[in-house]
Computed example of a mutant assay.
Amino acid sequence: MLTRKQHELICFIADRLNDTGVSPSFEEMKEALDLKSKSGVHRLISALEEREFIRRLPNRARALEVLKVPERGAAPKSAAASPTSASTTISSSAPLPAPANDVIEIPLHGRIAAGTPIEALEGASMLPVPAALLGSGEHYALEVAGDSMVEAGILDGDYALIRRTETARDGEIVVALIDDAEATLKYFRKEGAMIRLDPANRDYNPQRYRPDQVRVQGKLAGLLRRY
């Protein structure tokens, strides 16, 4: 049997899949159910999985498959509202649209140093990225070269997903363009009249520059790693 919120969520997901073929985002689920946080959505999704109402499709962002939907009568007021919860299994003759692989392509602008600064290469290639990894704003990707950010979990060969911005707060990981020629991925900090770019590897030293030498070109939004 389903709680009222579980009933509302499975109906919302099923309706969205019927309309668009794409699973709603966790943010959309949170707003639709008037929840305070996405953690509540995660709990509801897990509960619906356990009850075999939905299934998550592996290796596909935001991809949910509805296995059965409850009857569209009055939603239960609570888990104890009725001893059973009637449900209808989706028949093979009228399947829901297959969930779309919610992936978008963002520009891949070469390699960026996570060690000594190297030239930021501009390229025309695109990188497919699960939309769930990105928030609002314009994004691009850079392939990480070097090991100076390993203690922040950023490894050589990773793809850094960068949200474009020209400002940063102390402690944020940014793409810093130095002297309009070289770019590096580092923690951004202000130190008196200077800008300090900190590595996340004790084998590397901080780099200090005048503010006119450093231009923030974005900050880290996520990572992609291939195995």
Rank of each mutant, 00 (worst) to 15 (best):
A168M: 15
L161S: 04
A160W: 09
I178E: 00
T165P: 03
T165N: 04
E172P: 13
I162Y: 06
T167E: 12
I162K: 06
E172W: 13
G157I: 07
I178L: 11
A160I: 09
E172I: 11
T167R: 13
L161I: 14
G171H: 09
G157R: 07
E172C: 11
A176Q: 02
I173R: 02
R169I: 04
I173V: 13
D180W: 12
I162A: 04
G157C: 10
D180R: 14
L161F: 01
I173H: 04
R163Q: 13
A152L: 06
E166T: 15
A181I: 00
I173A: 03
A152P: 01
E166C: 13
T165K: 09
R164M: 05
E151F: 06
D156S: 09
D158V: 06
V175H: 07
A152T: 06
T165E: 14
A176R: 00
A160K: 07
I162N: 07
E151C: 12
V174Q: 12
I178N: 01
A152G: 07
D170T: 13
G153L: 11
D170H: 13
Y159F: 14
E166R: 15
D158C: 02
V175M: 05
I173Y: 03
D156V: 05
G171V: 02
A176T: 02
A160S: 07
V174F: 06
V150N: 03
V174A: 13
V174W: 05
I178V: 08
V175G: 08
D158F: 05
G157Y: 08
V150L: 05
T167N: 13
A168W: 12
E172T: 13
L155F: 15
E166M: 15
E151P: 04
G153V: 07
D170R: 08
A176H: 01
G171K: 10
A168D: 14
I154P: 14
R164D: 05
I162G: 02
V174Y: 05
I162V: 14
I178W: 00
G171R: 09
G171M: 08
L161V: 02
A181P: 01
I178H: 00
D158P: 09
T167W: 04
D180Q: 15
V150I: 09
G157N: 12
R163L: 08
D170K: 06
V174S: 13
A176Y: 00
I173G: 03
E172K: 10
D158E: 02
R169S: 11
T167C: 09
D156E: 06
E151I: 02
L155W: 15
Y159Q: 08
L161M: 03
D156A: 10
A168Y: 14
G157L: 09
I178P: 01
R169W: 07
G171Y: 07
Y159K: 04
A168Q: 14
A176D: 03
G153W: 11
R163Y: 05
A181C: 01
R164Y: 04
D170M: 10
L177W: 07
E172V: 12
Y159H: 06
L161W: 00
R169T: 09
I154C: 12
G153Y: 05
V150Q: 03
A181H: 01
L177R: 08
R169Y: 09
A176P: 04
D179R: 10
D180E: 15
E172N: 11
A160V: 10
V175N: 07
Y159P: 02
T167D: 12
D158R: 05
